[in-house]
Amino acid sequence: MATREQVDELLAKMAAERASLIRVAEGLSPEDALRVPVDAEGEEQWTALEQLAHLCEMERTYDAWVRAALREENPDLSKVPWQTVPIPVEEANRYTVADLLRQLELERQYTLGLIDGMRLEDFDRVATSPMFGTLTVLQWLRSFYRHDRQHTAQILGRQSDYQPNFKGREPNQRRARLELVARRQQGLG
């Protein structure tokens, strides 16, 4: 069973990685926030603003996955609708770093409230994703700080020391996002 120490460690790492992300983002010039790395692939091709918007979307989506695991026994997360946020990735470059950091702050406040309302045994509940397999709620929540660390490195133009453990090959989220936007514009999705 999850322990109070594990939850405290989770919260401490979430706070530390988010603080690091915020420091890096606040240090960006408007030009740097819109810079696209040369020779990057997938989500590494996103601007810093798009990366921040992606983190907002994923925070809200991870929260939805956790709520699903708290509601039912081992839910199939592919059936949980993708969560939308006020500033989606495809619109991020029209906003400022400060706008996106405010959105991240709101998302994190919700996440911390969700965690605060959980009992220790809730952290042991599981949910299954086609991309990541079956994980406990505690493992899903650890994704928050690991994901922040990954994108902080990408914003800095470095390879992250954390890489998600996908089942199979990592999807090209940037291409998938562009395809989704195109379908929406055509009225197909």
Rank of each mutant, 00 (worst) to 15 (best):
V126A: 05
E121V: 07
T134C: 05
T128R: 03
I155R: 00
Q154D: 07
S129F: 02
R158G: 10
S160N: 11
L156E: 10
Q163H: 15
E121D: 09
F123T: 00
D122E: 05
H147P: 04
Q163S: 15
S143W: 06
M131D: 08
R158Q: 15
D122A: 10
H151I: 07
Y162D: 10
R142D: 10
F144N: 02
Q159T: 15
D124F: 05
Q139H: 07
G133K: 08
D124K: 14
D148Q: 10
R158D: 07
D124P: 00
N165Q: 15
S160L: 15
W140R: 04
R142C: 06
R125M: 09
T136F: 03
Q163T: 15
H147D: 14
R125V: 06
R158I: 09
D161Q: 15
T128S: 04
R146V: 06
D148V: 00
L141E: 04
F144K: 00
R158Y: 10
A127C: 03
H151E: 05
I155P: 00
T134L: 04
Q159L: 11
Q163E: 15
S129A: 04
S143H: 04
P164T: 06
Q159M: 09
L138G: 04
I155D: 01
H147C: 11
H151S: 11
S143C: 03
W140Y: 12
T152V: 12
H147L: 15
S143Q: 13
Q139M: 09
F144E: 02
V126N: 06
R142W: 02
D148S: 13
L138C: 06
Q154M: 13
F123H: 00
R146G: 13
F123N: 00
E121L: 11
F132T: 00
G133R: 12
P130D: 04
R142N: 13
Q154Y: 14
Q150A: 14
Y162Q: 08
Y162G: 11
N165E: 14
L135E: 11
Q139N: 01
T134P: 04
S129G: 01
